[in-house]
């Protein structure tokens, strides 16, 4: 687990960032969009957002394919996607073998099927909306899927007290960009339904930047020396849910998976 730099370092970096970025456009995006401010003067990223891509099936580029459940036919088939990763994932050889095992057994192994917490960054691009609740000291990301919650500590930066499914997130502002540094993961979550996985050495640095009133540019650097030979990046836009009545709906999926997980332990009627 990576330890968090001292607060002084962060403060210095923030001051430097504030000076260097206020007048500079965000790289590759033309003149920087300036989001509405929160009461404390930060870019306001609040709202209900959702990714709109096929990465929840497979973060790598992939062609369409039949689904995993025969009875569901085309309604559960895999839509093709151009991927959110540049190039193939840099798996270490032994890790690549495990990824292939995961693919072969994904119907039973994918933690999503069991309503387990999705981990990071997978939660971000699952096909469900999530809400950012932004305050100066804490920013929470509330996901629809499995009611997963991430707390991003903006002022009280500490190391993860223990490993967890959603990790331990410390946040900073890099000009207009919210930077979230997350460690303290367990090794139980995947990146997608294609068996892409990580270890408990996972370290994710995400960048959320508003590029219009209704778009966030999302970028994450994934580092996991036990599984990958080098760090790699994903990126995608996130879209604001513009429905006037958009809200997070309850998706308490535990009752949906109980027969899947415990069904074989049901008492059989006497013969």
């Amino acid at each position: 687990m990576r330890s968090w730099p001292a607060r002084g370092t962060i403060a210095a970096a923030l001051v430097a960032a504030a000076f260097s970025l206020t007048t500079m456009p965000v790289e590759g995006q033309g003149p920087a969009y300036r989001a509405p401010r929160t009461a404390d003067g930060k870019a306001n990223l609040s709202g209900i957002w959702q990714a709109l891509n096929e990465a929840y099936w497979d973060i790598e580029a992939h062609a369409s394919a039949p689904g995993l459940v025969l009875a569901l036919g085309a309604s559960n088939a895999v839509p093709g996607g151009v991927g959110i990763v540049e190039g193939p994932l840099p798996y270490r050889p032994e890790a690549l073998a495990k990824k292939r095992e995961n693919v072969a057994s994904r119907l039973t192994l994918d933690p999503e099927n069991k309503c387990y917490l999705p981990g990071v960054p997978r939660a971000t691009y699952m096909p469900y909306p999530f809400q950012i609740v932004q305050t100066p000291a804490y920013i929470m990301i509330v996901h629809t899927y499995a009611r997963a919650v991430r707390t991003i500590y903006m002022t009280d930066h500490t190391d993860a007290p223990a490993d967890s499914w959603m990790g331990w997130s410390n946040g900073t502002w890099d000009g207009e960009t919210l930077v979230v540094d997350t460690t303290g993961f367990n090794d139980q979550t995947w990146f997608d339904r294609a068996g892409n996985f990580h270890s408990d050495a996972l370290h994710v640095v995400e960048r959320f930047t508003a590029t219009s009133g209704d778009h966030l540019q999302y970028e994450a650097t994934i580092e996991d020396p036990k599984v990958f030979a080098r760090p790699w990046k994903i990126s995608m836009p996130l879209y604001r849910r513009l429905e006037k009545n958009a809200q997070l709906m309850e998706f308490n999926c535990v009752p949906f998976v109980e027969d899947l997980i415990y069904g074989h332990l049901r008492k059989q009627p006497a013969k």
Partner: peptide, 15 residues
């Protein structure tokens, strides 16, 4: 702070 309470994920008692 509050900690993650992954109840369902670790529900060995029920199993």
């Amino acid at each position: 702070p509050l900690f993650e309470h992954a109840c369902h994920e670790g529900n060995y008692g029920l199993y």
